[in-house]
Simulated assay, not measured.
Amino acid sequence: MTKVTPPDAPFIVDEQHITDFREHGFARIPGLIPADEVARWREIALDTIEEDGRRAGMGGGGTALRTTSDPWWKHDTMTGLVRHPRVAAAAEQLAGTPMRVWSGQAYAKHPHDEVPTIWHEDLTLTPLDAPMNVNAWVALVDVPVERGCLIFLPDSHKRPEPHRAEMSAVKSHATTYMFNEWPELEWYPRVTVPMRAGDVTFHQSTLGHGSHGNHSDGTRLAFIISYTGASAIYQPRPGHQRMDEDLVPGQQLPDHRYPRVSDLLAEAPRP
């Protein structure tokens, strides 16, 4: 007899994705966001990036990596994607610990911007003390290899501590700091992950990753949602940029600005 999933059942991540995430530091979940939703978020993301560009006095086109410049809560149109219950549920199940939203930002890389994204890990840039930080990379267009899909260094999250580099090292040697700090990572296998629109990759903040440039005729458009442990403490290090005037070093993140995944799931309408 075929097993039928009830229409109001909560989203459950496949066990293989959980194994991949915990063993290798990342997982790709195909089709996590349905096609009709992707089309809507794609339009909103492009409009928001262009609005930010106009406010900053930037013209259209060019080859610079373009991002939304304000904190996610200042873009009402994008709040729904940052708080997306399926992405949030997946992040928390992969992490295996209660999580909350930390940030969200749209990224557009223009056609033939062939500058690669440097090899890096996210923890050094994260002003938090938390048991787990997870980044979700939401593909809003198809991202084949030639468009600059992500490349991961599997198992690099298991390298010996310290897992953070000094911000001074990042600023002085941005393109090489990761391999300067952890030379063994240069010899790790590299896994290239092409994505279809609606696919989402999740990776731990200690995992090394980067991407090639965009060699295609189309814009590479993605949205990155960052999650952190529900008990995360705001703890900036020397060189960190202040994220929010309301944050106090040494204190837990406030729920009203950085919602817990459990609250997002409780608010989400049932299908």
Rank of each mutant, 00 (worst) to 15 (best):
residue 210 G to Q: 01
residue 217 D to N: 14
residue 199 D to W: 07
residue 190 R to S: 01
residue 245 E to S: 12
residue 184 E to Y: 03
residue 253 L to N: 09
residue 200 V to P: 02
residue 196 R to N: 10
residue 236 P to Y: 08
residue 199 D to C: 05
residue 192 T to P: 04
residue 242 R to D: 13
residue 194 P to E: 01
residue 204 Q to C: 08
residue 192 T to M: 08
residue 167 M to H: 11
residue 246 D to N: 10
residue 238 P to T: 03
residue 181 E to M: 12
residue 208 G to D: 00
residue 224 I to A: 15
residue 168 S to A: 15
residue 251 Q to E: 15
residue 234 Y to Q: 12
residue 210 G to T: 00
residue 211 S to H: 07
residue 176 T to F: 02
residue 222 A to M: 11
residue 200 V to M: 03
residue 202 F to P: 08
residue 243 M to W: 14
residue 189 P to R: 01
residue 192 T to W: 05
residue 201 T to S: 12
residue 190 R to H: 09
residue 193 V to C: 14
residue 198 G to H: 09
residue 234 Y to W: 04
residue 235 Q to M: 14
residue 225 I to N: 13
residue 240 H to E: 03
residue 195 M to N: 06
residue 235 Q to N: 14
residue 200 V to T: 04
residue 173 H to A: 15
residue 174 A to L: 12
residue 240 H to S: 10
residue 194 P to Y: 08
residue 214 N to H: 11
residue 213 G to W: 03
residue 232 A to W: 03
residue 178 M to V: 15
residue 236 P to R: 04
residue 222 A to N: 08
residue 231 S to Q: 13
residue 184 E to T: 10
residue 235 Q to R: 15
residue 229 G to V: 06
residue 209 H to V: 08
residue 203 H to L: 04
residue 176 T to D: 13
residue 251 Q to V: 00
residue 204 Q to N: 11
residue 178 M to H: 14
residue 189 P to I: 01
residue 176 T to G: 13
residue 244 D to I: 01
residue 207 L to W: 08
residue 188 Y to V: 02
